[in-house]
Design a protein around this nucleic acid. Sequence first.
DNA 1: AGTCATGTTGTCGCT
DNA 2: GAGCGACAACATGAC
Length: 547
Amino acid sequence: MSRNFKFKPKPLKTLKYEQPKTQLLFELFTIGSVIKRLPAHLPFPEVSKMPTVVHWFRLDLRLHDNLALRNAINEAENRKHILRPVYFLNPDSIHNIGTNRLRFLIQSLQDLDANLRKLNTRLYIIKDTAINCLPKLFQKWQVKFLTVQVDIDPHLVDQDDAIEKVAEENDIFIVKRVQHTVYDVHSVLKKNNGSVPLTYQKFLSLVQDMQVKETIDINKQISECCKAEDYNSKEYDVPTLEEIGVDESTLSECKYPGGETEGLKRLNVYMSRKQWVCKFEKPNSSPNSIEPSTTVLSPYLSHGCLSSRLFYHKLKDVENGMLHTQPPVSLLGQLMWREFYYTAGAGTENFDRMVGNKLCTQIPWGENTEHLRAWAEGRTGYPFVDAIMRQLKQEGWIHHLARHMVACFLTRGDLWISWEEGAKVFENYLLDYDWSLNAGNWMWLSASAIFYKYFRVYSPVAFGKKTDKDGLYIRKYVPELKKYPSEYIYEPWKAPKSIQTKAGCVVGIGYPKRIVDHDKIHKENMQKMSLAYKNNREKKAMKRPRS
DNA sequence: AGTCATGTTGTCGCT
DNA sequence: GAGCGACAACATGAC
């Protein structure tokens, strides 16, 4: 697969395109847009009466701060063309999206459709993949203009390349907008001479003096003449969960409903707590509180229900004139971590794999299907690890430090299983799954890249006790242990048989025995890490002999 | 050029 | 009981 891993600025072509003299002209030529002039091609049968402008929604499920969408609206308005905002959802190709995330997605699409209808347009859901269907729609709808957000997930990038090719053959203008991150990651890479900043501090220094664009709003009613004749067709309605093959009765209570409306509401709730925002320090927040100790804005940011730039500006407003914490620990610092990983992901080939990934230390991970399953299903015999994995599976969100705990346990700490396996499980379960953050954080936790102090191993017994001495969190998510005395809640195997019986759960019967002995195995693993690092160093030295 | 301090988020044992 | 160094590190930038 060919991928844009080194910074290669796409040329901004000059066009001979009779633009109406509007704001659009200005918008089209601002930094971050990529516009293609494409050769003419033939018309086709069954075409719509009027030409169409399409906005292709992907990870930008919102109206606010969506410049690509506004470009589409303006173009349709100025030329009196049909406007069709579309989303491609193929029920057959959603296998790596877990049911919780699918629910979040469907809710987000419902909300998006509702918000679009307030503007006198709607969302067209196409129950197919973009690759299969967009070329046909180009002709069926007489598409002349296509707007889309720039995404960096290689799956989407590959899709883009293919679509752009087809568009080329159909004389369609494409406008791509950078609006998923605060900064244009390619500008950051360029500023760093084309290479990836490998430390957070380095990243911060690069973006320090970069301007962050103001956000925009879309709130004008769209003209009646931009409505398609199939405006009321049920064919394009947002499907129900049942229709895409999800049995809703298997899902737990919905703690984090999807959608722009929820995302904005959540943002405003937290931004109104000014003292809390200004005092926020991530490492001091608790991984095992019963209610989240952080904002849980991440699923809204990952789906684009919430604009990262809006979050940025709101945070700046709150911090303005107040004494506040600083990156990396501050709330703004959290947003910058996201930017950091996006930059690394965009600038690194094979970022989501170990082999062929320049940043990633090559480590000879083992295979153990049984252990991997036990970990994923929350039955390792370590109550804290199991509680976290069960919360993840049920609710689709766990605290960042809880992710540290279980990721360390799966990889360098205990099970010695590849971080790629863990990343796949997280991709399935997390509401806030994000391609670059997921791969980046897994490499961090497995001490494969960016973070190197592999001897800092999280103890499945000690770590949780710091913030939850009595194991209330464990009692909630591993209810079979809820009657255990606090003394044994983190290590039930140490409880005398009589106490186990009295608590109604004998280890090995009602709750699994430990699948590994942490005290022993983490020391063995550290030796393996040491060796892997040593081999890595030697390989590097071989590649770059002293001149 | 080489040295040195520094960096989101560990644990244990000793003072 | 808090604070500190040891324990199996590496990239960066200041000097």
